[in-house]
Amino acid sequence: MKILVTGCAGFIGMHVCERLLARGDEVIGLDNLNDYYDVTLKEARLARLTPRSLFRFIKHDVADRPGMAELFAHEKPQRVIHLAAQAGVRYSLQNPHAYVDSNLTGFVNILEGCRHAGVEHLTYASSSSVYGGNTKMPFSETDSVDHPVSLYAATKKANELMAHTYSHLYGIPTTGLRFFTVYGPWGRPDMALFLFTKAILEGQPIDVFNHGKMQRDFTYIDDIVEGVIRVCDRPPMANPAFDKQHPDPATSWAPYRVFNIGNHNPVELMTYITTLETALGKTAQKNFLPLQNGDVPATSADTAALQAATGFAPATSVEQGIARFVTWYRGYYGV
């Protein structure tokens, strides 16, 4: 199988590429190596992939329309796992145009590439952020997601709508994955576990938002990758039960799906911090702060649909996952 993975130097992207290569797939890795966070970390991830004979790296920006058209025409991937995006809820308050360029323009370029290259399945990253201010837990794919509370969330909801349009018009099988909080070795430096670990080891206070009254559906990276691969291997079919004569506005005939991908076991933020303190052998100084703009106090994933479709079930506890992250962090940074 020849698979294009965008965002291959990213946290999830690198791990997905490693799993695909391990099973013998040919992987075309795409990344623009931007400086949203430490480029040397991205380069170190990439260095784990480039020695592999079945891997080829292309440095490119998904927002470059002619370049993406040329890439698809030349490479003709059979499947696409699209993980490249401008991430981060808080950064979208500072640099909104980065989200338009990468998450909207870039996504159209991916859809057009899939259309003209005859890609048999597009799996793409959505986000739990689309649930916005919803308070019913756990979040379900059938819940309304019409009220995003950040531009990042709005772009991810737009991706789902755009994907459905292409599935409907051109029959392209598309699956969106609403990622919840992913953590583990080689993680992103802008995420809580990374920030907390760095601060605690340096003897600096950590910022604990909403005065610690937060819950997150933390999912370990190996579990996430297993779910992504299972989804990639199962392209959706058109809905044979859809009645075009008497259509139900809540359903679609198109080969289109959206799944939550998470742990279905939310953890209190303070429990998460305590587990990290145990793994580090140090107690954190805590700076309690109000909830930030664009953030939500709790997330929890209903993963029944994904489990029914793929058999996916996370297997890594928070204690195991944090311990593995700490081991990696100490080794990578020599602390």
Rank of each mutant, 00 (worst) to 15 (best):
K2E: 06
C8A: 01
C8S: 04
A9D: 11
A9I: 14
G10Q: 02
M14Q: 03
H15P: 00
V16W: 01
L20R: 00
D25Q: 00
D25I: 02
L30K: 03
L33N: 11
Y36G: 01
Y37D: 08
K42W: 02
K42I: 05
L49Q: 07
S53P: 13
L54N: 03
I58P: 02
V62D: 09
D64C: 00
A69V: 09
Q78K: 06
R79M: 09
L83V: 10
A84M: 10
A85S: 15
G88N: 11
V89A: 10
V89E: 10
Y91R: 13
P96S: 04
D101V: 02
V108L: 09
C114V: 12
C114W: 13
V119G: 11
H121Y: 09
Y124L: 13
S129P: 01
S140T: 09
S144C: 00
A154N: 08
K157C: 00
M162E: 06
H164W: 05
Y166G: 00
G171Y: 01
P173V: 03
G176W: 07
G176S: 05
Y183Q: 13
P185E: 15
G187L: 13
G187N: 12
G187V: 14
D190Q: 06
M191E: 10
A192C: 13
F194I: 15
K198T: 14
A199W: 13
A199I: 14
I200A: 08
D207S: 03
V208Y: 06
M214K: 06
M214I: 10
E226L: 06
R230E: 12
V231S: 00
C232Y: 08
N239H: 12
A241P: 14
A241N: 14
P249I: 09
T251I: 08
A254L: 08
R257I: 07
V258E: 09
F259E: 07
I261R: 06
G262L: 12
P266E: 05
E268P: 02
T271R: 00
T271M: 04
Y272K: 06
I273E: 12
T275C: 03
T275S: 01
T278P: 03
G281Q: 08
T283W: 05
F288W: 13
L289A: 03
L289D: 07
P290I: 11
L291Y: 11
Q292I: 10
Q292R: 09
G294F: 08
G294D: 14
D295M: 09
V296L: 09
P297W: 06
T299S: 08
A301Y: 14
G311H: 15
P314Q: 10
T316W: 11
V318L: 15
E319K: 04
T327D: 14
R330W: 03
Y332D: 15
Y333A: 06
Y333I: 09
G334M: 05
